[in-house]
């Protein structure tokens, strides 16, 4: 069994999404900031009349951000069935045919950048490609974030009498 994955780079590292999750790849375009959104959400773009939220993977992985280059791309992926989300990556490399046998389960000890979001590790030639789990990237922290917002709001009401 072979699976196709879409490879991309962030810094010098190779990552990939499953091709079935990738809807399209576009050049970087103007992103409208949503001021009150969580940090890792860069903003929203207008893709032919559709409003699509954009995630900055660098920020997601806790890396420093980088001045956009001409190679930067937005990978539009499908998340939670019908929602589209754009992911900003440094560069899209190519579509890779990965054999099932080349895909290894993520070792539990991986803690590096994006470690929490790994679906599996793909070894091709001497390259290691991290196949990311889209659902995890977006869901987990969304919920974390929600919790944080809920907490801070609860707190506000408590502290307001003294302010």
């Amino acid at each position: 069994m072979e699976r196709k994955i879409v490879g991309f780079k962030i810094r010098e590292d190779d990552y990939a999404f499953e091709i079935m999750k990738v809807v399209e790849i576009i050049r970087l375009k103007e992103i409208t900031e949503v001021p009150t959104a969580p940090d890792f959400i860069e903003g929203v773009i207008n893709l032919r009349g559709k409003i699509i939220p954009i995630i900055d993977l660098r920020r997601r992985f806790g890396m420093e951000s980088k001045e956009a280059t001409i190679m930067f791309r937005i990978v539009i992926v499908e998340y939670a069935k019908h929602q589209l989300v754009g992911v900003v990556v440094d560069e899209v490399t190519k579509v890779i045919n990965a054999k099932e046998s080349d895909m290894l389960a993520a070792p539990a000890t991986v803690t590096g950048a994006g470690g929490r979001y790994i679906q599996s590790i793909v070894k091709i030639e001497d390259k290691i490609i991290v196949l990311l789990d889209i659902e995890k990237i977006f869901t987990e922290d969304e919920q974390d974030k929600l919790k944080i917002i809920a907490l801070s709001e609860g707190g506000k009401f408590e502290e307001s009498p003294n302010s």
């Binding site: 409208t32 969580p38 959400i41 409003i51 939220p53 929602q83 989300v85 977006f138 929600l146």
Partner: peptide
């Protein structure tokens, strides 16, 4: 709509 994903962005009802 800002979509499910941004529903927790406070202060904006949509775009």
């Amino acid at each position: 709509s800002l979509g499910e994903f941004l529903k927790f962005a406070k202060g904006f009802s949509g775009v």
